[in-house]
Design a protein around this nucleic acid. Structure first.
Lengths: 189, 189
DNA sequence: CTACAAAACTAACGTTTGTTAGTTTGAATT
DNA sequence: AATTCAAACTAACAAACGTTAGTTTTGTAG
């Protein structure tokens, strides 16, 4: 009795290939080869190639949404909430970097209704993030007059972290969290 | 006598499509339709679909390399050099966002020898950027003990700016430069 | 008016694509 | 020993892919 189903093995292998070449450039025969089986055999486990993408992206999008809701329920200061969000992104980067690549780069290849759902989730997430930043500004914890630029800078850095994390060789997660918080919040100059 | 050749029109139209769906998901028939012609007619002007990608990415990579060399020859302080690099990225984002999308997302679909060339150029660019940051640290202009994290944070933000710039509606470039410098260098807290 | 070259066209090619249908294998259960 | 069932297989499909060959249109210069 294998603890991981055959279907989730396929999704895992596929996500690695998607990360390297993107969803559109990966064929079902590529995925089958990685699974050491024939392409047709995949269809004993999955409905379609697109289903793999949908599972990867929407499951991860829900993780982000859940994480955001947990942070919102914290009784901490806005700055501590942002710190918690940075840690959320880093944990996801470390544990699900392949799905994260798909979410970042291949969401537009979801079926139309799921694109709508995904974009709505992403906009909601950004809106919640923005509100935390604004709260921090109005409390005087954040000094800048550019909440939108701050939001964009932090999110850009966190969303691309998966590219950098693999290149730099697996760093200690706690060190990484500390350093990222230091640079993103306390600044450079 | 049209000032823009037919070939560059094709490259321009193709780059818009690549930005939306990625290189692999765009077919030559898509490009032809955008040009209001038949797919076969494209080949009076281009050698292959891949040639379009090569031109887009390598030309832009050279722009970045040239810009970096100009900054290096400045007699300014490291902090001012970083400011100049931020402005370089913003200028390219505003004027060549489609090519920038291809460079960011589709470089792995270049032919093998050009992948090697591209990666070498990118690593050299990052190395030069890193040295400027280190110089700033040793001069006491930059306080952090994390040059690598700073490099990554700044580059991530600048490289993804093209996504945000289009969404937010065309902002005034000079305002954008000022705000980006403020957030990226002077920090948040 | 003719000649020429650029740039469009039609038609088709060999491959590769995602997917389906039907069959075989092999291990566990009755 | 017979049955069942998940999971692999072979073979093939129609559609879409990038590209080529050969032909016609179109605008310009002699």
């Amino acid at each position: 009795m294998s603890t991981t189903s055959r279907k989730s093995e396929i999704i895992s292998k596929a996500s690695q290939l998607f990360k390297e070449k993107g969803y559109s450039a990966v064929t079902v025969r590529d995925i089958a080869q990685a699974m050491e089986m024939k392409a047709a055999s995949l269809y004993n486990h999955i409905d379609s190639k697109q289903e793999i993408l949908s599972i990867l992206i929407l499951d991860l999008a829900r993780d982000f949404t859940d994480g955001m809701h947990q942070v919102q329920q914290m009784k901490n200061s806005p700055l501590q909430k942002i710190e918690a969000l940075i840690e959320l992104h880093i944990d996801i980067t470390v544990n699900q970097s392949e799905a994260l690549a798909a979410l970042n780069n291949d969401w537009m290849h979801l079926p139309e209704n799921e694109v709508v759902e995904f974009v709505a989730m992403r906009e909601s997430y950004e809106e919640n993030f923005r509100n935390i930043i604004k709260e921090g500004i109005s409390l005087g914890q954040i000094q800048s007059r550019h909440p939108e630029v701050i939001l964009f800078s932090i999110l850009s850095t966190l969303r691309t972290l998966y590219l950098w994390y693999q290149k730099r060789g697996k760093l200690d997660v706690n060190v990484l969290k500390r350093d990222m918080v230091a640079v993103l919040l306390r600044g450079i100059v």
